[in-house]
Nucleic acid binder design. Structure first.
Ligand SMILES: [Zn+2]
Ligand SMILES: [Zn+2]
Ligand SMILES: [Zn+2]
Ligand SMILES: [Zn+2]
Lengths: 170, 170
DNA sequence: TTCATTTTGAGAATGAATATCACTATAGGA
DNA sequence: TCCTATAGTGATATTCATTCTCAAAATGAA
């Protein structure tokens, strides 16, 4: 499930195996076909880049990892892949939109994000059952108090990544 | 403390009393003066607008509530007020940055946000002790697993506000 | 009143994201 | 295989929230 022993509730980046990779592209092709969209070479490049990076990535990181797919093509396809529930937008800490594979495609299920306030790095972190229970309870309280119908949540844990901490200790 | 009886952990908008209002402006003036900044009429208008709205507000809402302070002035002063820890930026659900008074100035302390995915409305919600405890535990686990030094968190509960739900039931 | 410093605000510039559109690639039928 | 309708591409133009510029106005100290 992408969790190394003793790693608690925070995941490291885990590369998909070749078999998982085939499975991924099969699922993407299916999701696209139900919306009469083709799984083109450029889209495959983008999906491959997202899987390879294993964390929410900026457009710049993506076009570089996706072998120089043009910006306009990358943006357009990320939008289409988003509508097909292949890609999810992640609001960054800096002003940059980031993109990641949808939870059911990335191997890990529901998760949250850890953000470095210094360099903007974003990594995934699985949520603990206790945290999810507390969130569900909060959602209930809000529905009661404000009539707001809470259907999901976004959690970002903000701090300093290892390399930024090392760099600060100069 | 801004919490009506029986409202659980989700706050409604609460107007500051005249006394609280004087206290607010005094604190703002102090925070600005320590950074050699003046508490000008325009800055006072903006702070008054933020207090009056009582929820994270967009630039458009602010310039309207602040009696037509020019856009460039509003942006510049929100930036200065941010550096002075008077104002906090809230990343919106839509693409719009929102601004709110710093927690210690708005009467309520640490809180989270409830976002309507339909109209973009953002309101405040106090956090329960159980939720905060679970968040602290998660932060500890992440520090252990990734070396990430988590110092704060941002939580958005996403759903549908009452008026958008009513509008959908047409 | 000077005069140095800060602040203002209209307009210009920036830049991430989106829209355009002529061209290319592809699927499917003839 | 050849056609053709449709979908996709990518260089370029456009949008628009946000930031920058800078001459004029306000402020405070002397
Ligand atoms: Zn970092
Ligand atoms: Zn993620
Ligand atoms: Zn709404
Ligand atoms: Zn708030």
């Amino acid at each position: 499930m992408g969790s190394a022993p003793g790693s608690g509730y925070a995941d490291q980046v885990v590369r998909p195996s070749p078999a998982e990779d085939r499975e991924l592209h099969g699922q993407v092709a299916l999701l696209l076909s139900t919306r009469d969209q083709r799984y083109t070479a450029q889209r495959r490049q983008i999906v491959r880049a997202l899987a390879k990076l294993g964390r929410p990535a900026t457009i710049g990181e993506l076009v570089e990892a996706a072998n120089g797919v043009p910006l306009s093509t990358a943006y357009r396809n990320l939008s289409i892949l988003g509508e097909a529930n292949v890609v999810r937008r992640v609001g960054g800490a800096d002003g940059f939109t980031r993109f990641e594979l949808a939870e059911q495609l990335s191997g890990q299920h529901h998760h949250h994000h850890v953000v470095c306030e210094s360099c903007g790095l974003v990594i995934d972190a699985a949520a603990s059952p206790a945290l999810e229970a507390a969130l569900a309870e909060t959602a209930r309280a809000i529905a009661k108090a404000n009539g707001f119908d809470v259907t999901e949540h976004r959690l970002e844990l903000v701090g300093r990544c290892t390399s930024c901490r090392d760099a600060a200790a100069s």
